[in-house]
Amino acid sequence: MSEGTVAGHTLFSDPAVESIVSGLEKALGVPGGGLKRSSFRDNHRVWVEPARLASALKHLREAGMDLLIDLSAADYLGYQDAEHRYGVWYILENTSTGTRIMVRSWADDPSPCLPSAFDIWRGSDWMEREVYDLLGIQFTGHPDLRRILMPDEFAGHPLRKDYPLRGMGERHHFVPLARDES
């Protein structure tokens, strides 16, 4: 939970997280508290707009957040009070201090697009491909952005909310084999 305010913006309860986020704000050239932040349980989140995401991630990497724990996204189509369709999260950790922070960003239709973190953390390689495959968010700068889980010819993005759980009937389209011909 956030506690205390300085100059009108909330601070993170964890001083290590607070110093990282204020350093990030300084590096991006936004005033203190300029980035939207929130906390829930032990998760500390800071929102960065897509245009600034690449430089923000680069700064965080240089500030010691060397482990990319998770990169994924969700489709917020129809979610209450959602402003953007896709929300993307990067969970980062400093392996020497154990500080953990979540960077949030967003993307929108018709062509959801974000900068790739491939050059910053190599671990983001397959995670970005998975997000591209299941949710259809493009990552510019990724050297090999192909489908990873679904077949190459698949046209939809199954984790989008407008894709039905039981699919569009693709699972029934195969050649049945009879016993006498096999």
Binding site: F40, R41, D42, N43, I69, D70, A74, M102
Partner: peptide
């Protein structure tokens, strides 16, 4: 609550976490 949360455990294979929206 209308929130999002990531927590993880040390599973035999490594960090196994779930992110619930």
């Amino acid at each position: 609550p209308v929130e999002e949360l990531y927590t993880a455990t040390e599973s035999p294979n490594g960090e196994l976490g779930f992110h619930i929206v």
